[in-house]
Computed example of a mutant assay.
Amino acid sequence: MNHPERILVIKLSALGDFIIALGAMRAIRTHHAGAHITLLTTKAFESLAIQSGLFNDIIIDQRPKKFDPAGWMRVRNIFKAGRFDRVYDLQNNQRTALYFRLSNMTKPKPHWAGTMAGATWRDVISSKATEPAPLRHARLLALAGIENVRDDDLHWLGGDHDVLRDLFKIPEPYVLIVPGCAPSRPEKRWPADHYGDLARRLYGWGLTPVVIGTHDEQPLAQTIITHCAQAIDLTGQTALSDLPMLGRFAAGAIGNDTGPVHMIAPTGCPTWVLFSASSDPKRHAPQYPWVRTIQRSKLDDLSVNDVMNVLKARDFRT
């Protein structure tokens, strides 16, 4: 009796990177249609991974510390118990390089697709710092015989227009405002006062500003509302799975280089992303023709007039 092929996909973080990798994950599932596919990821993305329907099992990475022999033994046991035929490493960092070494201590050793020396299918082009992740993923998978890697439009997260109206009751047309970012990266955040002034001007164009983010970003929303009382605060009220639905029916979206923007852009929503010098739009911006970027060395130096000079009312969906 032939057993299904056993595949492990590794993608740990962050949110935007996880969303970008979904196209590669779907291509792996299509290529290995009858396989038993396991995802090794972090707790934050477990729900999205389940909803995607791409995986038979999900293992949560426990991220062992450098001096944690028991933790590293648990990682080794993932490979020992999994008896994987193939591993697709879509993370390719120092941590997964260690995982690769641990996998080599098991029998049978899995075939590995990644950037590490000794990998079965090795992407030796050192372009990680300058090249968008989708191109890297497509090239790596092509080495392993997987073609037609395409972006995932997040259609599987669903939500039609009636659901949107019932859940959020937003006056249309509306524009999404994403003023937050990772707390550890304040240099990637355009000032909330600027977003407030922008929201006021967008309302003057007949667009309802809708602020989205986590509960911790509610103070940013309140600052925006002091400038534009008509803005709607949805911070802390949406799940990650709600963001594609909001993007699907929005007139547009404007935000910082942060994960929620990567969940909005695949839906076809006209999107403007604001960048500081701390990250490269060519590498980190969502790679769609309807996404535009605006960059300054310091986002504090980006004025509202600068942004308005890029935005055009006709570029928003109506």
Rank of each mutant, 00 (worst) to 15 (best):
R101T: 14
K66S: 08
L246F: 10
F84N: 02
T30D: 11
V307W: 07
F316C: 01
P173Y: 06
P260H: 07
L143Q: 00
G236D: 10
S184V: 11
I232T: 07
L240E: 12
H31M: 00
K282Q: 14
D300S: 12
T267H: 04
Q91R: 02
I59Y: 09
V178Q: 06
K128H: 10
G196M: 11
K312I: 05
V87L: 05
K298H: 15
R201L: 11
S126Q: 13
Y195L: 10
N309M: 10
A265W: 02
D123P: 00
H227S: 12
M308P: 08
L90H: 04
L135M: 08
K188S: 05
L234R: 04
L12A: 08
P171E: 15
M25Y: 06
K80W: 06
W72T: 02
T238S: 09
T318S: 14
T41Y: 10
G158Q: 13
L246N: 03
V291Q: 08
R6T: 13
L54H: 01
V307Q: 02
V211Q: 01
K43A: 14
A138W: 05
A250Y: 01
L15A: 10
T226V: 10
E46Y: 10
T38Q: 08
A44K: 12
F45L: 12
L198D: 03
P69E: 05
T214P: 05
M263P: 01
H32I: 08
D166E: 13
L140R: 04
R136L: 07
Q287H: 14
A253R: 02
G180H: 06
L40H: 09
R165Q: 15
G71C: 13
A192V: 12
T226Y: 02
G159T: 09
A144N: 09
R314I: 05
A144D: 03
T120I: 01
Y174N: 09
V273H: 00
V175Q: 05
R74T: 12
I146A: 03
S126A: 13
G82S: 08
D61P: 00
N92I: 03
M116D: 10
M308D: 09
R83H: 15
D166G: 04
L240R: 05
C269R: 01
N93H: 08
A44Q: 14
V75Q: 13
G255T: 04
L54C: 07
I20S: 00
G158M: 09
I212P: 04
I232V: 15
Q230E: 15
V310Y: 09
A113N: 01
L140E: 00
P134W: 01
I254C: 03
M73L: 12
D301P: 01
D300W: 13
R136Y: 07
Y203A: 15
R6F: 05
R6V: 04
F84W: 13
L98T: 07
T214A: 15
P132K: 03
I264Q: 00
A129C: 01
P132F: 02
R101A: 15
K65D: 15
